[in-house]
Write a protein that binds this DNA or RNA. Structure first.
Length: 881
RNA sequence: GCCGAGGUGGCGAAAUUGGUAGACGCACUAGUCUUAGGAACUAGCGUCGAAAGACGUGCGAGUUCGAGUCUCGCCCUCGGCACCA
């Protein structure tokens, strides 16, 4: 053994040993409990960044912990390798997307291996390989059979910058999720997956995972699905001059969650795209048509959400009858009513809805109060809408009833009279998966002049991407320019036909990849249901919370489809989810010429005020700079290269530090200095083992707890207390606190100060227990170092898993301290401390406290009102002042 | 605007869930050893104070023997959503 700790030597040695022995290969074993540890798969950009390192370090720590707890652990890795950047590289540098992607995978896998993550690489999947995307197509055909995949003409979210269509999730906020540019609309024939067939399940099954998922992720998903319960109510369009044939066009159906406010409706407001407009267009004035078209055009413009959109609209001149009151209401077009939510029409109740209130104020429409607060308080003036529940007024036969009751009764009334019904609407839309892109899984559909839209035959899968296609980054799919690809024959009639040239959204790949790990080489099925039944569902999933909505909703949807296909027997794919915070870096830049120029942190001088706040940043040449904390990336000049970290400090130190530096769910501001602390700690442990190695290794030691020296007993206490703390931390997914506990233990081992030469057998036993426990508990954070130390302590070279090593066993008896410090307070203020055995009875503690010299300074001559004794905790003496 | 999370030393953070606030680490200060050290070790390190002690977990109130933790009101920061009827 070297006296000094050489990270590189140890790390290379154990990485080779693990690979050679297949240490992390997982096989089905019915006799052992399984644990499926999964981290979100990365896009193979070619560079590992610290965000990845943080994610995989946490996952690897849990994988190791579970192995040491005796679990059969599946810990796989794969690549989300279809997608935009490969095409960007093709456009910019003329590279072949396939070659570029494969090269990146090799590069990144090398980086991951140098970090020493414990993956079963035999199960590696990559979305862009035909053996994987074949089953994207397989699933598509299954969903087509089930009626879950369909095509329709639609206005899609379109990103002009990326020349790509986007799902609602990807266009949320009106900005492209990838490039951040504004999203516009475009008409296209698109393929959809019917996620809305599962809205209720997606919502209701959250109850099953409520314990294991972060609250805020569940909340965001349920907001996104946006179920709202209310009623449809039909308003008949009146006014003879506008009457048209066909009942459906003379009706405007509105959706409302507040049918109890219907007597306060002052208008029916419809979306500018509403079919009623089309039906009546011929009778509209040119001015009216121009205004409506202007509103449509305005709505299509990208929206800046910082600025509130001003209400706009126009009276169509049409009238609609309120079926409850019989009143004739004007029909308005409003820019705030959206065609794709609810029915595209609302009843406007300005007294009780903020938007309607604003609209009515803008256009001088009447405002009629029909709900009053239940508890008499005439506080609601005319300057705002009263949107709470209350008691109805001026509402016909429902006057005097509460909102709750009225809602129920009025809905029933509408249904009974045929002008309405209870209804639920959702915000969630079907998932548009068509992309006019090359680097994705081709949609297995053929268009035949004779047979129409024909699904491919299963035996023809995979529909292979061509080797080459003219990738320009714009316009229609590159596949539409490759006749060898799109010219085919109809699977139905064998006549010449054309293939679909759209490819699938890459979120399709990540919706089911974790199942593929259970049976990665299957050529017939996406996976063998029996193998999946052993390994899935995923026990622990770890990734960034930027995927809280899109990826996680799609994956949950996909799992429900798998269940309905009979491939799995559960509803939810991920039992537990951990969302880790971003790794961010300090960025220093100047903004001259509108272009950001970045500076490396070392080349700047930072001045701080007395409170530590940064007051100014100056570059070495004296130029004042701007300062920001931003997500790490190479282009921003604040990136850290994991390879460089490994080179300088070692993989173990980098991993240990990234786990220790902050709670996993917090944002982590990368600070290079901290990592040296991790190196120091590993060196300290190394020196301890080096010092004691000879004394403790390979010896049979007889222990007799009774006669053991105080220091030996104390060391065992600390060891067992640490075992408890570290185990509990892992079980509650904390990674920073167990590292602190291990540091404390190593400090304690050092502090006892005995030397191997003069230590007795009991002490050596205690030291061996402490060092072995410390080593085993260190494994999840610093596996290479731990393997090496374990080999030294136990005298084997086969690796701790092959050796059958287990997480140290906690012994409550040994963890008990024989004397504890009991703080003594007088009137809640700490005045003294007394030493006592934890078993000391309360009366005894009270006596000791009252007798304490320091305490008596405060109590002498005062009346003692009472004494509170909390066993093992404290004594508080209450005196009269 | 709505929803969510959070405000603890110079910094990252702990705190057995109502019981010694600041564990552990970074940075810093002094010292030991050393030819040297960006090594190791020792000591110190919330604020004020010579000390005794007082004060101290965003601000203000409250409950309690006792509050970082519970309740109410306010301020601030970060994240998400955004005319969803």
């Amino acid at each position: 053994m070297d006296e000094k700790y050489f990270a590189k030597k140890i790390e290379q040695k154990w990485q080779r040993k693990w690979a050679d022995s297949g240490a992390f290969h997982a096989e089905i074993d019915e006799n052992r409990p399984k644990f499926f540890q999964l981290e979100m798969l990365p896009y193979p950009s070619g560079n590992l960044h610290m965000g990845h390192v943080r994610n995989y370090s946490a996952g690897d720590a849990l994988a190791w912990y579970k192995r040491l707890r005796g679990f059969n652990v599946l810990h796989p890795f794969g690549w989300d390798s279809f997608g935009q950047p490969a095409e960007d590289a093709a456009v910019k540098r003329g590279v072949n997307p396939r070659e570029w992607t494969e090269e990146n995978i090799i590069l990144m896998r090398g980086q991951l291996e140098r970090m020493g993550f414990s993956y079963d690489w035999r199960r590696q999947m990559a979305a862009h390989r035909p053996e994987y995307y074949k089953f994207d197509q397989w699933f598509f055909l299954k969903m087509y059979e089930m009626g879950l995949a369909y095509k329709r003409q639609t206005q899609v979210n379109w990103c002009e910058h990326d020349q790509a269509t986007l799902s609602n999730e990807q266009a949320s906020g009106g900005l492209c999720w990838r490039c951040g540019n504004p999203v516009t609309k475009k008409d296209l024939e698109q393929w959809f997956l019917r996620t809305t067939a599962y809205t209720d399940q997606l919502l209701d099954d959250m109850a099953d995972i409520a314990d294991g998922w972060p609250q805020n992720v569940l909340k965001r998903q349920s907001d996104w699905i946006g179920r709202s319960e209310g009623a449809f109510v039909e308003f008949r369009v009146s006014g003879s001059e506008f009457r048209v044939k066909g009942d459906e066009l003379s009706l405007v159906k509105v959706f409302t969650t507040r049918i109890d406010t219907i007597y306060g409706a002052n208008a029916v407001v419809i979306a500018p795209e509403h079919p009623v407009i089309q039906a009546h267009r011929a009778s509209f004035s040119t001015h009216l048509i121009a205004r409506i078209d202007a509103i449509i055009a305005e709505n299509l413009k990208p929206k800046d959400h910082e600025v509130e959109i001003e209400k706009d609209g126009i009276d169509t001149g049409l009238k609609a009858v309120n079926p409850f009151s019989g009143e004739d209401l004007p029909v308005w077009v409003g820019n705030y009513v959206m065609m794709d939510y609810g029915t595209g029409a609302v009843m406007s109740v300005p007294a009780h809805d903020e938007r309607d209130f604003e609209f009515a104020k803008r256009f001088d429409l009447p405002i009629q109060t029909v709900i009053e607060p239940q508890i008499n308080a005439d506080g609601h003036g005319s300057d705002e809408a009263f949107t709470e529940y209350g008691v109805l007024v001026d509402s016909g036969e429902w006057t005097g009833k509460t909102s709750d009751v009225a809602k129920r009764e009025m809905t029933a009334h509408a249904a009974a009279n045929g002008f309405g019904e209870a209804a639920t609407t959702y915000r969630l839309r079907d998932w548009g998966i068509s992309r006019q892109r090359f680097w994705g899984s081709p949609i297995p559909i053929v268009y035949c002049d004779k047979c129409g839209v024909v699904p491919e035959k299963f035996e023809n899968l995979p529909i292979l991407l061509p080797e080459n296609a003219p990738i320009t980054g714009t316009g229609e799919s590159p596949l539409a320019k490759v006749p060898e690809f799109y010219e085919t024959t109809c699977p139905n009639c064998d006549e010449p036909a054309k293939r679909e040239t759209d490819t699938m959204d890459t979120f399709v790949d990540s919706s089911w990849y974790y199942f593929r790990y259970t049976d990665a080489a299957n050529e017939i099925l996406p996976f063998d249901p029996q193998k999946a039944a052993y390994w899935t569902p995923v026990d622990q999933y770890i990734g960034g919370d930027d995927h809280a909505i899109m990826h996680l909703i799609y994956a949950r949807f996909w799992t429900k489809v798998l269940r309905d296909l009979g491939l799995v027997k559960f509803d939810e794919p991920f039992k537990r989810l951990l969302t880790q915070g971003m790794v961010v870096g300090e960025t220093f830049f100047d903004d001259e010429r509108g272009k950001r120029v970045y500076y490396v942190p070392g080349n700047v001088t930072v001045t701080r005020d007395a409170k530590g706040k940064i007051t100014g940043v100056v570059s070495t040449n004296g130029k004042p700079l701007k300062y920001a904390i931003e997500r790490m990336s190479k282009s921003k000049g604040n990136g850290v290269d994991p390879d460089e970290m490994v080179d300088i400090y070692g993989a173990d130190a980098a991993r240990l530090f990234v786990m220790f530096a902050a709670p996993i769910e917090n944002e982590l501001v990368w600070n290079e200095a901290g990592i040296e602390g991790a190196v120091r700690f590993l060196q300290r442990v190394w020196r301890l083992v080096y010092k004691w190695q000879e004394a403790v290794s390979g010896k049979q030691l007889a222990v007799s707890g009774q006669e053991a020296s105080a220091s030996a007993r104390k060391l065992r206490q600390k060891t067992h207390q640490t075992i408890k703390r570290v185990g509990d931390s892992f079980d509650s997914l904390q990674f920073n606190t167990p590292v602190a506990a291990l540091m404390e233990l190593s400090n304690a081992i050092g502090d006892f100060g005995a030397e191997p030469e003069n230590a007795d057998e009991n002490y050596i036993f205690a030291i061996r227990e402490a060092l072995t426990s410390l080593t085993l508990m260190l494994t999840p954070f610093a596996p290479h170092t731990a393997e090496e130390l374990f080999a030294m302590l136990v005298g084997n070279e086969e690796g701790m898993l092959a050796h059958g090593a287990r997480f140290p066993e906690y012994n409550e008896e040994l963890a008990k301290t024989d004397e504890i410090e009991i703080p003594v307070q007088v009137n809640g203020k700490l005045r003294s401390r007394v030493m006592a055995s934890p078993e000391t009875p309360n009366e005894e503690l009270e006596k000791m406290a009252l007798a304490d010299e320091k305490v008596r300074e405060y109590t002498d001559g005062r009346e003692i009102v009472k004494v509170i004794v909390v066993p093992k905790r404290l004594v508080n003496i209450v005196i009269k002042n």
